[in-house]
């Protein structure tokens, strides 16, 4: 039996705001019956951009009902801008926490809110579609990345708890692990607040990134890379070993080396091969 807090039990047994708002300003439906959880959120907004009424309908377990009920209570009275900042963790916190295995219920709530807000703003949700990683539950790499980043997830089990990805046939576990390590290394090395880098800093970070993120992969294929110079945002490198004679080296520089440097050092960096 799940260890639900009294607050979860209360919101499950006495859910607030069940139903549908008439002539809603924001509407969203997320999840599916196949996945075992779905949520329809509707809200009404007044002339001051404030959510005056929010209602839900849900198909799901006790924690899905409680999370949806909590979500409507949280956003009522908020401006749309305030509501846009509500996270899945806020929903879980409101309920005094959810069992780890049930965190995906709070994520479903956040997804519904996001979608309903963009519906209200008249813009269809501008989200890159991403690639499906988990076929069983139709979860994309972008959704997994986001959950890892926002909730500081570390294991496949965490990801399954938060997104359901990997909870079925488990054939995508390796892919999820790759995403986790990619996102986490990005999170750990991300310069938190350095809007400008000095050239020295930049060179140092480029070297570190090459050592940590780039060289090991190239070496696996018998190749190597050397940093020759950094001029502004131009990173000049020389390929070595197998890379030097490889037809695909240019592709590697653009899609791998440059992508990594953009990700870890500076988004405007451009990689060029040393012509000498």
């Amino acid at each position: 039996m799940w260890d639900y807090t009294d607050k979860v039990k209360d919101h499950f047994l006495n859910p607030r705001n069940v139903g549908e708002v008439e002539n809603p300003d924001g509407v969203a439906e997320v999840g599916s019956i196949a996945c075992g959880g779905a949520l329809r959120l509707t809200f009404k907004v007044d002339e001051n951009n404030r959510i005056t009424e929010a209602k839900f309908k849900t198909f799901g377990c006790a924690s899905a009902i409680a999370a949806a009920s909590a979500l409507t209570e949280i956003i009522k009275g908020m401006t749309v801008e305030e509501a846009a900042k509500v996270t899945n963790q806020d929903i879980a916190n409101y309920l005094g926490g959810l069992p780890q295995e049930k965190m995906h219920c709070s994520v479903l709530g956040r997804e519904a809110l996001e979608k309903a807000i963009s519906h209200y703003k008249g813009a269809p949700l501008q989200m890159a579609p991403g690639n499906i990683v988990c076929e069983c539950f139709g979860v994309t790499d972008l959704e997994i990345e986001r959950a890892v980043e926002e909730n500081n997830l570390a294991t496949v089990e965490d990801v399954t708890n938060y997104t359901k990805a990997g909870g079925g046939c488990s054939s995508c576990h390796e892919a999820i692990e790759e995403i986790i390590s990619r996102v986490r290394s990005r999170m750990e090395s991300k310069p938190v607040s350095s809007p400008r880098l000095s050239n020295i800093q930049k060179i140092k970070m480029i070297e570190e990134t090459i050592d940590r993120e780039i060289r090991p992969s190239l070496k696996q294929d018998g190749g190597d890379i050397e940093l020759i110079d950094v001029v502004g945002n131009r990173v000049i490198v020389a390929t070595r070993g197998a890379c030097a004679s490889c037809q695909a080296a240019n592709m590697t520089l653009k899609h791998f080396v440059e992508a990594k440097l953009k990700e870890f050092v500076w988004p405007e960096l451009v990689v060029e091969e040393d012509s000498q």
Partner: peptide, 11 residues
């Protein structure tokens, strides 16, 4: 036999 009761995510 629902997913949510089994601790797994599938029925």
């Amino acid at each position: 036999g629902s997913a949510c009761t089994s601790g797994s995510l599938q029925p």
